[in-house]
């Protein structure tokens, strides 16, 4: 289990590392690492591998919005049935049940502000038991998944020190 957690931590920061490399880092045979990763994938612990992309730098406009949603829960299902209706839309990047003033936080990605706005008013706001929505558009992404999007500082260390 300790191995699993350490492997997951390593993969979370760099999903492209090979089983050989991780094995070398942890002083374990690559086959053991492959097995642990394989099981984690089969068990749905590792969901997917992806890149963290700075779309501004890539020269493509992407609009991100956080939508706070108030929902009337029902006996039995709570918020889950409404959540399911929402997360099935491909526009929805992430969905969380929240403490505080709102119940659900939806993160939406679209190519224009118009597209996101119309999704919220036509799809989201009209779902049964959705009482209100509040949309917040992302103006600038400074940091995502622990990755800072600003220009990286050069390594200022002297090349040789005692």
């Amino acid at each position: 289990m300790k191995d699993l957690h350490e492997i997951l931590t390593i993969l979370e920061s760099d999903g492209r590392l090979t089983a050989e490399q991780i094995g070398d880092m942890l002083d374990r045979p690559a086959a053991d690492i492959e097995k642990v990763i394989g099981e984690a994938e089969a068990d749905g612990i590792i969901r997917r591998y992806k890149a963290v992309v700075d779309w501004d730098r890539a020269g493509q406009e992407r609009v991100f919005a956080f939508i706070d949603v108030k929902v009337t829960p029902t006996r039995g299902a709570g918020f889950d049935d409404v959540a399911e209706r929402i997360y099935k839309f491909p526009e929805v990047v992430s969905l969380y049940l929240m403490s505080g003033e709102y119940d659900l936080r939806v993160i939406i990605q679209g190519s224009t502000m118009q597209e996101v706005a119309s999704f919220v008013s036509n799809k989201l706001a009209t779902i049964d038991r959705v009482r209100s929505t509040a949309s917040h558009f992302v103006l600038k992404r400074y940091k995502e998944d622990r990755e800072i999007f600003a220009e990286k500082d050069a390594d200022h260390r002297l090349a040789v020190t005692p």
């Binding site: 390594d155 260390r157 002297l158 090349a159 040789v160 020190t161 005692p162």
Partner: peptide, 20 residues
Amino acid sequence: FFDIVADMKDVISLGVCEPD
């Protein structure tokens, strides 16, 4: 050694004694 390295570009240094 430091003086030689100082004039070179694009080196990978494993010569430092401080954290990255």
